[in-house]
Write a protein that binds this DNA or RNA. Structure first.
Length: 430
RNA sequence: GGAUGGGUGGCCGAGUGGUUGAAGGCACUGGUCUUGAAAACCAGCAGGGUCGCAAGGCUCUCGGGGGUUCGAAUCCCUCCCCAUCCGCCA
């Protein structure tokens, strides 16, 4: 959520950002609406003041035992006017709120113009593997191992589900544990095991509601399956006022995520790239506004470290305007090399959301300053995948596959795989 | 799911229709005292909105929303949350 006052003071900056994003709401609409709202508000408040004065008079008169009938009659008519004024002020207020709730964050100045093709490649790391044979796709490998079953998953749950078994099931668990260990022991994140079902307010707080309702799964009791652990993790600070010295707060969680994938019909239909349910290790930082830029680098580095340790080739890109999510002022994507597709595919998305989410969930911090007492201010929130576990498994299978169909396990994972080095072509761990 | 009791400022807690945005305490900030610290004492200390150059004014907020009333933290309705007991259950 943006601050209407900020928009009032910076209409050009707001419009420039909206234009870059390809949005069609501009400052003038909002400012006009806000002006009307404020006029109505003033009117309403004057009537409230009058009401309060008269009510006090009545109270005083009664205390002295005097007759207050005349004042009471006046008060009664004020009451009628007031209810009309309140109704129109509230209506305008609601209109403005509804509009603001759907407006995306203001883009950082560094964000390049354009769409998907216009991302800036920040760095490219690791060695793209060369194969002396035609590399297979992860789903071919997994099915050949007998450890990945899309057909049965479809029978049980429908399209966009998968069943992992044996070594692959274990591999997913190992990856989650490995990632959590790195983040908690090396990057200062606290491991959290959050709820996977959340209320409207939580989703509103992180910005999935009201605009992206159709991407979520809603349960029969009006709770939502989390599309990412970003939702419960960021909401950990909702309605809090954190002391300055407690910043930054860093949280990580290994959870399942659920997405309806409405509107992505036909995309990534094969394999486990795009599923209704997938596991992810999420990173969330709650930061001081002056430190948030730096915190984004810290968070992204944590995610990159996983890729590096796993020996996967990847690149880091800065998303262009139209590809940057509504919450974010700036987003880095990490893309991992997938031999079967011969290209880099998103495996992590690390965003600085500035105070956009904090405003929605009223998450603040109290500045600590000598002598002077300052008002609480909104924190900055950041989130990133560190990493998408399902896609990491995909990348491992493809990048570490051997010609005979076996898959070598990277060194760092072996302690998490009972010391085993390889998944053999018949699906055994050895 | 049933029953009961609760939700008040950063925290604890008083307050059951009338100048109560709210006693008291803790925490915090400043000061006095002290070589320094502690203690003691004095003072300050909620947030949002809106008007105003400012000083400051007005207004809203006692879990959320709605209602009764000239006037609501206090009465009514509804929803949410917490606690305890019973039932059910991984």
């Amino acid at each position: 959520m943006l601050d209407i006052k900020w928009i009032r003071d910076n209409p050009e900056a707001f419009d420039a950002s909206q234009k870059s994003r390809g949005q069609d709401v501009f400052a003038k609409t909002l400012i006009d609406l806000d002006e009307e709202r404020r006029a109505l508000l003033t009117e309403m408040q004057e009537l409230q003041a009058l009401r309060n004065t008269l009510a006090k008079e009545i109270g005083q008169a009664k205390a002295k035992g005097e007759d207050a009938a005349e004042v009471a009659a006046r008060a009664s008519s004020v009451k009628t006017d007031l209810s009309v004024a309140e109704a129109s002020a509230n209506e305008r207020q609601q209109q403005l709120q509804d509009l603001l709730a759907r407006i995306p964050n203001v883009l950082d100045k560094q964000v390049p113009e354009g769409g998907e093709e216009d991302a800036t490649v920040v760095s490219t790391q690791g060695q793209v593997p060369e194969f002396s044979f035609e590399p297979k796709s992860h789903d071919e490998i997994g099915e050949a191992l007998g450890l990945m079953d899309f057909a049965k998953a479809a029978q049980i749950s429908g399209a966009r589900f998968v069943i992992l078994k044996g070594a692959l099931s274990r591999l997913e668990r190992a990856l989650g544990a490995f990632m959590l260990d790195v983040h908690t022991s090396e990057f200062g994140y606290q491991e959290v095991n959050p709820p996977l079902l959340v209320r409207d307010d939580a989703l509103f707080g992180t910005g999935q509601l009201p605009k992206f309702e159709e991407d979520q799964f809603l349960t029969t009791d009006q709770r939502w399956l989390i599309p990412t652990a970003e939702v419960p993790l960021t909401n950990l600070v909702r309605e809090e006022v954190l002391p300055e010295e407690k910043l930054p707060q860093r949280f990580t969680a290994f959870t399942y995520c659920f997405r309806s994938e409405a509107g992505s019909a036909g995309r990534d239909t094969r394999g486990m790239i795009r599923q209704h349910q997938f596991s992810k290790v999420e990173l969330v930082s709650i930061a001081h506004p002056d430190e948030s830029e730096k915190e984004l680098e810290h968070l992204t580095k944590a995610a990159e470290t996983i890729l590096q340790r796993l020996g996967l080739a990847y690149r880091k890109i800065l998303l262009a305007a139209q590809d940057t999510g509504a919450n974010a002022s700036k987003t880095y994507d990490l893309e991992v090399w997938l031999p079967s597709q011969g290209c880099y595919r998103e495996i992590s998305s690390c965003s600085l959301d500035t105070d956009y989410q904090a405003r929605r969930m009223n998450a603040r911090w109290a500045p600590k300053s000598e002598g002077k007492k300052e008002k609480p201010r909104f924190v900055h929130t950041l989130n990133g995948s560190g990493l998408a576990v399902g896609r990491t498994l995909v990348a491992l299978l493809e990048n570490y596959q051997n010609e005979d169909g076996s898959v070598t396990l990277p060194e760092v994972l072996r302690p998490y795989m009972n010391g085993k080095k390889e998944i053999t072509s018949d699906g055994q761990l050895v």
